[in-house]
Amino acid sequence: KSIMKVYCQICRKGDNEELLLLCDGCDKGCHTYCHRPKITTIPDGDWFCPACIAKA
Rank of each mutant, 00 (worst) to 15 (best):
K1V: 01
K1H: 02
K1L: 01
K1W: 01
K1A: 02
S2R: 09
S2M: 04
I3A: 13
M4E: 05
M4Q: 10
K5M: 09
K5A: 06
K5C: 07
K5N: 11
V6K: 15
V6I: 09
V6Q: 11
Y7A: 08
Y7H: 11
Y7K: 06
Y7T: 08
C8N: 00
C8R: 00
Q9K: 06
Q9P: 13
I10N: 15
I10H: 15
I10D: 15
I10L: 13
I10V: 10
C11T: 00
C11L: 00
C11N: 00
C11F: 00
R12C: 06
R12F: 04
R12G: 10
K13C: 03
K13M: 13
K13I: 07
G14Q: 13
G14N: 03
D15G: 08
D15I: 04
D15M: 02
D15Q: 04
D15H: 02
N16W: 05
N16S: 12
N16T: 12
N16D: 14
E17M: 10
E17D: 11
E17W: 08
E18V: 04
E18P: 05
E18F: 07
E18K: 14
E18Y: 05
L19K: 12
L19Q: 15
L19A: 12
L20M: 12
L20Q: 03
L21F: 03
L21V: 06
L21I: 09
L21E: 03
L22V: 11
L22Y: 05
D24W: 09
D24I: 15
G25L: 03
C26N: 01
C26A: 01
D27C: 05
D27H: 03
D27A: 07
K28W: 13
K28S: 08
G29C: 13
G29E: 09
G29H: 06
G29N: 12
C30M: 15
C30D: 04
H31C: 02
H31N: 02
H31P: 02
T32R: 09
T32M: 10
T32C: 03
Y33G: 11
Y33E: 10
C34E: 02
C34H: 04
C34F: 01
C34Y: 01
C34D: 01
C34K: 01
H35K: 13
H35F: 07
H35V: 10
H35A: 13
R36G: 12
R36K: 05
R36N: 09
R36P: 09
R36L: 14
P37W: 03
P37R: 04
P37S: 05
K38W: 04
K38H: 06
K38I: 09
K38M: 08
K38F: 06
K38D: 10
I39C: 13
I39P: 03
I39Y: 06
T40Q: 12
T40S: 07
T40F: 12
T40Y: 07
T41K: 15
I42W: 12
I42G: 10
P43A: 12
D44K: 04
D44A: 07
D44Q: 03
D44F: 09
D44N: 15
G45M: 02
G45W: 01
G45C: 04
D46M: 04
D46Q: 15
D46R: 09
W47N: 05
W47Q: 05
W47E: 03
W47H: 05
W47S: 06
F48C: 14
F48A: 13
F48W: 09
C49M: 00
C49E: 02
C49K: 00
C49Y: 00
C49G: 01
P50L: 01
P50R: 15
A51H: 04
A51K: 06
C52M: 02
C52G: 02
C52D: 02
I53F: 09
I53V: 12
I53R: 08
I53W: 05
I53L: 14
A54F: 08
A54W: 04
A54I: 03
A56T: 06
A56H: 02
